[in-house]
């Protein structure tokens, strides 16, 4: 097809400015953002000085950083119609690999070269697990739920085998500069890294051929195949991307807690899936955005923070997140049924 120059084309009515606004209003992001702002407003009204102060706002962003990194990868996977239950275990495994490399070369006093080396090793380990997931799902034809449940167990088990079940520490420099540092005394490095991940991968999903093919594969794999998209290869890349981001999250986790925190990531997959789904990503594949996911991750984090400030027992949070996830999927399914009826 010859590409007509833009000047030859009359703007067709609805596709212009009005279309852009209409598109925005159609997206779930706006509604989810409204919920987030509403929740924040309620907490801010109840405890203005404790909730709305700079310290607490910073805490919220620091607490959201690692879940955002995991949920960004999860969003890609869910858009293809898959799921990745292994992210929490892969995070732990990657953290252990990174900590091992750093411990073997100076431990707490390791210099930046060692830290960089360890971080690369951790991210590579995460990517490796992602590749395993992708190969199991495509070449092995194992449903994503089972494949990633299997690697969830394997990655966590191997991390425990490698450490005899006791946590490893992290170099001081990593903790001081990445984990706890505030740029200009205000901006937490962890949150900035998470923001950078969200921006880069949000762009990848929304503006590139890779993102377009991700939607196409989730929307109709057979149609994607017929136009020449290599579906299996694309799925392997998407699972590898999720593994890579779990590896990044593993290094960030090591920096934040100065520990591999082996026992503390059993609900990471729940919070990543809930973040994506609350942000409008459909578990049936084909739709979702990174902006929505970021908002979707922030909601439980804000609720958790607010409950702590109000003195409510925070174990209720898991009850709430689980329930909200089920309700969100229920409405997504309802919406699809109504829409597909005609």
């Amino acid at each position: 097809m010859t590409r007509p120059s833009v000047a030859d084309i009359e703007p067709v009515g609805p596709a212009g400015q009005r279309g852009r606004l209409a598109r925005l209003a159609r997206t779930n992001v706006v509604w989810t953002l409204g919920v987030l702002v509403g929740l924040a407003a309620v907490f801010a009204a109840l405890r203005p000085e404790a909730f709305a102060g700079p310290f607490n706002i910073r805490t919220i962003f620091i607490n959201a950083a690692i879940p955002v990194v995991l949920a960004v990868g999860m969003t890609f996977v869910i858009i293809t119609g898959g799921i990745d239950l292994s992210v929490g275990s892969v995070l732990v495994f990657s953290g252990v690999v990174a900590a091992k490399v750093m411990a073997a070369n100076g431990a707490a006093d390791a210099d930046w070269t060692v830290i960089a080396l360890g971080s690369v090793a951790g991210v590579a380990a995460g990517t490796g697990w992602g590749l395993v997931n992708g190969l199991l799902v495509t070449k092995g034809r194992i449903p994503p739920l089972i494949a990633t449940l299997g690697t969830l167990g394997m990655a966590l088990g191997l991390a425990q085998v490698a450490t005899d079940g006791s946590d490893l520490g992290a170099p001081r420099r990593l903790t001081d500069v990445v984990g706890n540092h505030l740029i200009a005394r205000q901006l937490p490095v962890l949150a900035l890294v998470a923001a950078a991940v969200a921006v880069v991968f949000g762009w990848l999903l929304a503006a590139t051929r890779f993102g377009r093919h991700t939607y196409a594969v989730g929307s109709n794999p057979e149609a994607a195949r017929r136009v020449g998209i290599r579906v299996d290869r694309h799925l392997i890349r998407v699972y590898a991307l999720s593994g890579l981001l779990a590896g990044v999250a593993g290094v960030l986790n090591l920096a934040k807690f100065s520990s591999t925190t082996i026992a503390s990531h059993t609900e990471d997959n729940l919070s990543a899936i809930a973040g994506a789904v609350l942000g409008g990503t459909s578990l049936f594949g084909g739709s979702g955005t990174i902006a929505g996911t970021v908002v979707g991750v922030l909601i439980p984090v804000v609720v958790n923070d607010g409950l702590i400030i109000l003195g409510v027992q925070q174990f209720w949070l898991f009850v709430a997140v689980g329930a909200v996830l089920v309700v969100a999927v229920f409405f997504d399914q309802l919406r699809r049924r109504l829409r597909d009826r005609d």
Binding site: T208, R209, R212, Y215, A216, N220, A224, V227, G286
Partner: peptide
């Protein structure tokens, strides 16, 4: 064989996307 979640323009170009001029095109934009 359409991707129902994508719009008509995206479906028309599916698998044969037009990329930006380099350097952004090199990144698949």
């Amino acid at each position: 064989a359409l991707a129902y979640d994508l719009d008509a323009a995206a479906n028309l170009h599916l698998g044969r996307e037009t990329l930006r001029r380099p350097p952004l095109g090199w990144l698949g934009m």
